[in-house]
Amino acid sequence: MAFDLAFIWAILIAFAVLAYVVLDGFDLGIGILFPFVKADGDRDVMMNSVAPIWDGNETWLVLGGGGLFAAFPLAYATLMPALYTPLIAMLLGLVFRGVAFEFRFRAEKSRRVWDVGFAAGSILAAFCQGIALGAFIQGVAIEGRAYAGGWFDWLTPFTLLTGVALVVGYAMLGAAWLILKTTGELQERAYALALPLGAGMLAMIGAVSLWTPLLHPDIADRWFSWPNMLLVAPVPVLVIAAVAGLYWAIATGRDRLPFLLTQFLFVLSYIGLGISMFPYIVPRQFTIWDAAAPPESLGFLLVGAGILIPVILGYTAYAYWVFRGKVDPQAGYH
């Protein structure tokens, strides 16, 4: 019974984090692309394209953190101190970009300040999320039930790579979102940005995928030993197919396909990460069963999650449906 609950919760938290990446990735990407789009009117459109939904998107990050606290308190209590600096920098970045949605339109003379705040906050948040991811993959020092490392353990060449990788990936998602939601010059600009960003994203996926098995023999084992290799082979094969499809979709001027394929690439990378990490929740220290809260806690929240998550997905989908279609720059419905 305890086995099942811990596993279900690991899946649920993994789902929450994936939902966060899929949903908030593109609206962080909009911020990352702000410096590449100069016209004030275009920036209005970019912001308006995500203004009604960004808050809901970010809530998945709260669920990821809150769910970890509830279901795997030991993991929460050791990973948070280990990732202290990147997490706090990420939060500060999210503060800047979150308030910019309102402040930018309320400011008169200081509008530029919030343009910069939106862009810098988005880039910082994305970069720190990537660093946190990299630091999680490379593992943290533990003694007993506590983090035992220093406050700069997270800073390595690998984590800097994952930081940059996530910024590039989110920027690509942002460009694909703009292709989906805009028309005219802004859309053309997004197409032009998407090509190098797509290439960059492919390079980053490749670099991180090759580096990760080098970090630990058991990760390499999982990917390169027989017959595992056969089981996991679909992941890299699908990545290559998706990238080819993405290039074709951008080159032929498709509206929706670039966004869907970029999201698909994120999902594939995420699955790859899951293959490397499972069943650890604090890599090579605590498995999901070591860190799980007692079954009474897991069961109590699971009842609510089972009822409420489908409802949440329902009204989230409804909100997206209400604001469907192209953003009309003339109407500025915001």
Partner: peptide, 25 residues
């Protein structure tokens, strides 16, 4: 809670975590 009060989080997580989980959901 996690960054600055990790021992508190570890020890109270099984009780306070689900309550906060309900708040989020």
């Amino acid at each position: 809670f996690g960054t600055n009060w990790s021992v508190f989080s570890d020890r109270t997580g099984p009780i306070l975590g689900p309550l906060m989980g309900y708040e989020v959901l």
